[in-house]
Amino acid sequence: MAKSLLIISRQAPWAGPSAREALDIALAGGAFDLPLGMLFLDDGVFQLAPGQQPGQVQQKNLAANLQALPMFGVEELFAAGSSLQERGLPADSLSLPVKVLDDAALAALIERFDQVVTL
């Protein structure tokens, strides 16, 4: 049976290629039909903020790639509730349908996956 991989994305979206490159790991794995999950943690939750205009800083919109995740078979999408709360992002305003988890649920989530990459 294929090993499951949880990708924890902690980077804000427009500070360099890091957030996109984390997403690329998920999209590449999804293309191989691997069991993948993605968790947005710390500044990574800013990737989910609505109404962003990255064209203003001449960056490609990450939202299109994020929305492609379910189409690539990455359906397990999570965000850390404490990270959202700390950053004033209401859970019901996010640009992607994610499951919001408290800290105890985060520990259980990490425990459930075979492998974890945090970037």
Binding site: A2, K3, L5, A28, G29, F32, L34, V117, L119
Partner: peptide
């Protein structure tokens, strides 16, 4: 090569260990 090589290696290995 592409990112598929990372996934393939992670599937084959007992442990994936990242450094950064």
């Amino acid at each position: 090569s592409g990112l598929g090589q990372l996934h393939e290696a992670a599937q084959t290995a007992d442990r994936l260990v990242c450094f950064g």
